[in-house]
Nucleic acid binder design. Structure first.
Length: 276
DNA sequence: AGTGTATCCTGCAGGC
DNA sequence: TGCCTGCAGGATACAC
């Protein structure tokens, strides 16, 4: 569910609450969210101070006072909510893990489908894992030239390439569809088949749609919520995702939906021709 | 090596 | 009303 803009929104909100707070107590309601025992997980976090919160791709990273790190991946339906003490909000459904913080407040991880996970890393172990992720699409390192060069190494359909977190980190099915539409590139096209002009348009499209979605605090189709429980406002700005049968905003042709790699792809057959 | 597919899990919408 | 099917923003183990 949550792609880069959604995760960025959550991180920005939590940055106003978490740093400076201590993890006082941990309640694990759903142990299958972890890859270690609930006891080890709790022991590794208890009494650590949260120093910082950042994002890498679609992952949320909490830096702790002992140099270790807690990674939160929200999967499809994960939420990370901050609740002040005495909050009148109703208790969340599908609570997975509750972190009681000091001085005051709690951090709640909820997840209907439980595709998400929480992982502790040492500084060194995270460094190694981090290198396996592709560059940040909004980062300065990823130039048009590097993007184009990277595309040339793959025969995969460009939609699959964009979803592969080892290529570029943070893009999911919604923003892949939107970026391809903005660039006029059919999702089926081979990555290495894009010429310089097309790859430049694609990177520009990716950056534009991600920035606009961050500005709108992400896209709530159903389950995504910000850290304060709010909804993202980018939904009405989606031009093709979820709009099969509707008119293309550019040319009025009917938007099509095809399924490959087990996922829907939405595109305009006129603005995004499969063959040039 | 580099791809596509099936699978984990729950909830909801739509058809009958 | 209720049962059934298909579909969902992600990541990964496997087969080819």
């Amino acid at each position: 569910m949550p792609e880069l803009p959604e995760v960025e929104t959550i991180v920005r909100q939590l940055a106003g609450h978490l740093p400076g707070r201590r993890v006082q107590d941990i309640e694990v309601c759903r142990a299958d969210l972890l890859r270690e025992s609930a006891e080890d997980f709790s022991r590794g976090l208890q009494n650590r101070d949260i120093v910082a919160i950042t994002r890498r791709g679609k992952n949320i990273l909490l830096s702790l006072s002992d140099q270790s790190l807690l990674l939160v991946n929200l999967g499809m339906t994960g939420r990370l909510l901050f609740r002040a003490d005495g909050s009148t909000d109703p208790p969340p459904t599908h609570l997975g893990i509750r972190f009681q913080l000091c001085p005051g407040g709690s951090l709640l991880y909820t997840d209907i489908r439980r595709f998400g996970h929480l992982l502790r890393y040492s500084k060194a172990a995270w460094g190694k894992e981090n290198r396996r992720l592709g560059p940040e699409p909004l980062g300065r390192w990823l130039t048009h030239h590097r993007f184009h060069t990277s595309l040339q190494t793959s025969r995969a359909p460009i939609r699959s390439w964009l979803l592969d977190q080892k290529r570029v980190a943070g893009i999911g099915n919604i923003y892949a569809a939107e970026a391809l539409f903005r660039a006029g590139v059919h999702p089926f096209r081979k990555a290495r088949g894009l010429n310089r002009e097309e790859s430049k348009a694609l990177l520009k499209g990716i950056r534009k749609v991600l920035r606009e979605a961050i500005w709108a605090q992400g896209t709530t189709l159903r389950d995504y919520r910000t850290a304060s429980g709010g909804r993202g406002g980018f939904g009405p700005s989606l031009q093709v995702y979820g709009r099969a049968g509707e008119e293309c905003p550019t040319c009025k042709a009917a938007i099509e939906r095809i399924v490959f790699a087990n996922r829907s792809a939405f595109f305009c057959p006129h603005c995004q021709p499969e063959v040039l």
